[in-house]
Amino acid sequence: MRALLVVNPVATTTSARTREVLTHALASDLKLEVAATEARGHARELAREAAERGSVDLVIALGGDGTVNEVVNGLLAEGPDTGDLPRLAVVPGGSTNVFARALGLPNDAVEATGALLDALHAGSERAVGLGLAAGTPGTPDAVVPRRWFTFCAGLGFDAGVVGRVESERERGKRSTHALYVRQALRQFVGDPRRTNGAISLLRPGHSPIEGLALSMVCNTAPWTFLGSRPMYAAPRASFDTALDLVGITRLSSAAMPRYATQLLRSSPERGLRGKGVVTLHDVSDFTLQSQVPLPFQLDGDHLGLRTSVTFTGVRRALRVIV
């Protein structure tokens, strides 16, 4: 099998020596081409070129969720898989690796490589659904290019946390769970709209839901991990359905500890809940619209400010070796 290994050389949890060992192991079973990313967006271009050339049967992403997201967007640059695109495989190398872990892969890169080789030998794969976000027609964000996401998106509070973490990383801080917790606390203190939400949820054929302070779009469960602990914001979200949404209307000083505790104690049967929580399951098309520009993130990648984003859940969008 012909394969392209897209390597993020600055992945958080893999050393140069580990990446060399993994590359050697994969090359023993595959006709392997290796490409290291050089800048943000490079993984997307590498995957897009591989899909356009038809030169490989498999693209392997070695890195964190950001690398995986770029590879997915490169593979699906022309739309969902119709049977002729390379398959995707993932070797986790980031700090959280939500997509890989949600697929059931080990969080250790060496173990995950072994699992990948076993899956290749067995011919094991699955078609997964993905989310697609785009600027809403008729709004200032209409010109924003569409982008696929694998496990989550967010407009508002959680995206603000992601933006703060990225700013700290640009200053040289390591991406750790403690860093996320600190920035979540700072976002809570500094967010003027957490008690008076500016986000509206719009769905064809339904009345608008207004006043959301937080909006999280989930394509799978868990939503994220805190160390080894999975956190289920929308427990019924799945790669086999369309999208789930969790919105919160008010993040007051009294409510925030309650929601944080719910997340820490969440399970595949129980997620966020309460009077101020809005949930939708298995929805294919909806729009999040804000009265003011708000932070926006996809798969943990901060994409700046948006006033309106339209989401589409696409079933069986891509084939994954697992």
Score class of each variant (00 low, 15 high):
residue 86 P to Y: 12
residue 305 L to M: 15
residue 267 S to W: 00
residue 31 K to F: 11
residue 198 A to P: 01
residue 56 V to C: 11
residue 245 L to A: 02
residue 293 P to C: 12
residue 243 L to F: 04
residue 62 L to C: 08
residue 94 G to N: 13
residue 135 G to W: 03
residue 305 L to K: 04
residue 200 S to L: 01
residue 210 E to S: 15
residue 285 D to A: 04
residue 310 T to Y: 00
residue 11 A to Y: 02
residue 199 I to M: 10
residue 170 E to N: 09
residue 24 H to I: 05
residue 138 G to C: 08
residue 122 A to N: 10
residue 196 N to W: 00
residue 57 D to I: 01
residue 48 R to P: 00
residue 48 R to G: 12
residue 8 N to S: 14
residue 5 L to F: 15
residue 68 V to T: 10
residue 179 L to K: 13
residue 199 I to A: 04
residue 72 V to W: 07
residue 75 L to V: 07
residue 187 Q to M: 14
residue 95 S to I: 12
residue 101 R to Y: 13
residue 173 K to E: 15
residue 257 P to L: 00
residue 177 H to R: 09
residue 129 G to Y: 06
residue 228 S to F: 05
residue 222 P to V: 04
residue 290 S to G: 11
residue 41 G to C: 02
residue 221 A to M: 06
residue 160 G to F: 05
residue 214 L to M: 15
residue 28 S to A: 15
residue 67 T to Y: 05
residue 188 F to R: 07
residue 25 A to Q: 14
residue 253 S to E: 02
residue 157 F to Q: 07
residue 275 K to R: 14
residue 94 G to K: 11
residue 307 T to L: 01
residue 133 A to C: 09
residue 239 F to P: 03
residue 131 G to D: 07
residue 162 V to P: 07
residue 136 T to L: 12
residue 5 L to W: 06
residue 321 I to L: 13
residue 129 G to V: 04
residue 277 V to E: 08
residue 22 L to R: 13
residue 273 R to G: 05
residue 194 R to A: 10
residue 162 V to N: 02
residue 183 Q to R: 15
residue 106 P to Y: 10
residue 192 P to Q: 02
residue 232 Y to P: 08
residue 122 A to R: 15
residue 247 G to S: 00
residue 252 S to F: 03
residue 190 G to H: 09
residue 305 L to P: 00
residue 191 D to S: 13
residue 269 E to M: 11
residue 153 A to V: 08
residue 316 R to D: 14
residue 59 V to L: 05
residue 232 Y to Q: 06
residue 170 E to V: 03
residue 295 P to V: 06
residue 47 A to C: 08
residue 175 S to D: 11
residue 90 V to M: 12
residue 296 F to E: 04
residue 42 H to E: 00
residue 41 G to Y: 03
residue 73 N to S: 07
residue 176 T to Q: 08
residue 62 L to A: 12
residue 46 L to H: 01
residue 226 L to V: 07
residue 242 A to V: 02
residue 203 R to L: 14
residue 102 A to S: 15
residue 89 A to I: 11
residue 6 V to D: 12
residue 307 T to D: 04
residue 263 L to F: 10
residue 277 V to L: 06
residue 79 G to S: 07
residue 114 G to K: 09
residue 184 A to I: 05
residue 180 Y to A: 09
residue 212 L to P: 03
residue 49 E to S: 14
residue 268 P to R: 00
residue 279 T to E: 12
residue 14 T to H: 09
residue 172 G to D: 09
residue 312 T to F: 04
residue 158 D to W: 00
residue 130 L to V: 11
residue 137 P to T: 08
residue 215 S to P: 06
residue 84 D to E: 15
residue 297 Q to F: 04
residue 4 L to G: 13
residue 169 R to M: 15
residue 298 L to T: 05
residue 249 T to Y: 05
residue 233 A to W: 03
residue 290 S to K: 06
residue 216 M to C: 11
residue 274 G to Y: 05
residue 110 V to S: 14
residue 150 T to H: 01
residue 107 N to A: 15
residue 255 A to Q: 07
residue 104 G to D: 09
residue 31 K to I: 08
residue 214 L to T: 11
residue 175 S to T: 12
residue 52 E to G: 02
residue 175 S to N: 14
residue 223 W to M: 06
residue 225 F to R: 01
residue 69 N to W: 02
residue 72 V to G: 04
residue 249 T to W: 02
residue 16 A to H: 13
residue 181 V to R: 10
residue 184 A to R: 05
residue 144 V to A: 11
residue 223 W to N: 05
residue 170 E to D: 13
residue 34 V to M: 09
residue 18 T to C: 07
residue 275 K to I: 01
residue 75 L to P: 00
residue 256 M to F: 14
